[in-house]
Design a binder for these strands. Structure first.
Length: 466
RNA sequence: GGAGAGGUGGCCGAGUGGUCGAAGGCGCACGCCUGGAAAGCGUGUAGGCGGGAAACCGUCUCCAGGGUUCGAAUCCCUGUCUCUCCGCCA
């Protein structure tokens, strides 16, 4: 991207930019351009040349694209950019003349005067271009990804489409307890203790329950690395705002994140998707490096702002939880296949644990900001008598890749964005909930699923204590 | 945390404020040569953006941001990262 020295008088507008904005974005400058390195999600050319289509597709997911504003900003940007570059070209050639004249021992004073005037005009043009570029950047950064054509159109989760359901919903000869009661009975889960330590939406676990939680994560990691070809990665749980911008959590969803104090724009990760996917930021990957398949087990931190009153009981919705995350980086054109594969990998975990679940295709209105297509996996929870989300698998196509400049080469050798996918495989805490509730006995004991027993020292049953 | 040294193209590595997007080397690609290969020789080999049907042209990028200047890879300031030494620490 062009890096033009930002004229001093434009600093005020730039410095008013939110400190939460990624450094890369603030840096943009200047912008002689806003695409690719700017906060762009959609292909700039596609947006410009096929605006009607883009607007229509965004409307399907309930996003109102301000066509008039875009057209106005874009046309102004274009004329200013041409004007600025023309002036720069002039200045460059004139300045070179000075160099030559000086070398030839000629008088360069008249030349310097002429170029000086040019420079002032150039500064003015740059300043106006920067302002427009800033506006355009902010405008474009808030536009979500385009939904795939086969994504069901809808407004809310009520419009999601069930693809299939696997496993029989268990029927108990007694009244099923929920995981909170079970956890208490096993003396392994204490919400009050966590509330004392920190506050609401935290939990402490102990004994066999804590071990079961660990066993689940180990099992998932082993399954994905041994059977599904993923490479285990260990990543920071604190990331720079730039990374959050790359995957699309910023600038729009800062209120969902925990931000650290201090000068650095650092945040606790809301999902391993952020650090893992950003591993390929600013890289041009060789074709034979792809696909990249990575799995990471990390804690996740979410402020759950705006979730007051929702799922207040139990560990369904916590500020901190653990997750085993799958990420794939693939060449364009392979991501549709990869989404099916990755979702299948997540389902394998549920199959192995013998938990009943179903797969939903999220509708346009329920998908996340960065997703082009998303499958949610929902597990059956006897304690609630309903399915609950336990995994979300998304294809973001080139949306994240463009924001983070992650590329590979086309057959012609030209750089082109990769496609990125991510999905939970699975959310460990919620899987624990599902295991406890689905494997409960009438007396409050919980049977350990067979595949987990090697991770539990052979324990078959966790016995109720109280 | 303290002190010092440094961040240049895929890699290594030059670069007196002007003709430097940047010598040279390595790697890579293509070609010549060869029965084939190696060696040798030749040519090419960053990215973004804008304009253009294209050829191509323009512009920007030598860690980042700011400054000085007609002109900055080169000078100044700040930040950041890496390395070495000291301190601290799991």
């Amino acid at each position: 991207m062009p890096r033009v020295a930002r004229p001093a008088h434009s600093r005020s507008s730039r410095s008013s930019t939110s400190p939460d904005m990624p450094r890369r974005w603030r840096r943009v400058p200047a912008g002689l351009s806003f695409a690719t390195d700017g906060p762009l999600m959609l292909d700039a050319r596609v947006l410009r040349q096929e605006t009607d289509d883009v607007v229509a597709r965004l409307a399907r997911r309930g996003f109102a694209f301000d066509r008039e504003r875009f057209d106005a900003l874009e046309s102004e940007r274009k004329s200013l950019q041409v004007q600025t570059e023309t002036l720069q070209a002039e200045r460059n050639t004139e300045s070179k003349k000075i160099g030559k004249a000086k070398a030839a021992g000629e008088d360069i004073q008249p030349l310097i005067a002429a170029v000086g005037e040019l420079g002032e005009r150039l500064d003015g043009a740059k300043a106006r271009l920067n302002e427009i570029a800033d506006e355009l950047d902010a405008f474009l950064a808030g536009i979500p990804n385009l939904p795939d054509d086969d994504v069901p159109v809808g407004e809310s989760e009520d419009d999601n489409v069930e693809m299939h359901a696997v496993g029989d919903i268990p029927s108990f000869a007694f009244e099923a307890r929920d995981h909170v009661d079970l956890g208490a009975g096993l003396a392994g889960m204490d919400f009050e203790a966590a509330a004392k330590l920190t506050g609401a939406r935290f939990v402490t676990m102990s004994g066999p329950v804590a071990r079961l939680h660990r066993a689940l994560a180990q099992f998932m990691l082993d399954l994905h690395t041994r059977e599904h070809g993923y490479t285990e990665v260990q990543v920071p749980f604190i990331v720079h705002a730039d990374s959050l911008f790359g995957t699309g959590q910023l600038p729009k969803f800062a209120e969902d994140l925990f931000k650290l104090e201090g000068d650095a724009p650092w945040y606790l990760i809301p999902t391993a998707e952020v650090p893992v996917t950003n591993l390929v930021r600013d890289r041009i990957l060789e074709r034979d490096e792809l696909p990249l398949k990575m799995v990471a087990h990390t804690p996740c931190f979410r402020s759950e702002a705006g979730s007051a009153g929702r799922d207040t009981r139990g560990l369904i919705r916590q500020h901190q939880f653990e997750k085993v995350e799958l990420v794939q980086i693939v060449p364009a054109g392979e991501s549709e296949r990869a989404l099916e594969e990755l979702t299948g990998h997540a389902e394998t975990v549920l199959d192995a644990l013998g938990l009943p679940y179903r797969r939903l295709a999220l509708c346009t209105g329920d998908m996340g900001f960065s997703a082009a297509k998303t499958y949610d996996l929902e597990v059956w929870l006897p304690g609630q008598g309903r399915y609950r989300e336990i995994s979300s698998c998304s294809n973001t196509r080139d949306f994240q890749a463009r924001r983070m400049q992650a590329r590979t080469r086309s057959a012609e050798g030209k750089p082109e964005p990769v496609h990125t996918l991510n999905g939970s495989g699975l959310a460990v805490g919620r899987t624990l909930v599902a295991v406890l509730e689905n494997y409960q006995c009438e007396n409050g004991d919980v049977i350990v699923p067979e595949v987990l027993r090697p991770y539990m020292g052979g324990i078959v049953r966790i016995e109720a204590q109280v």
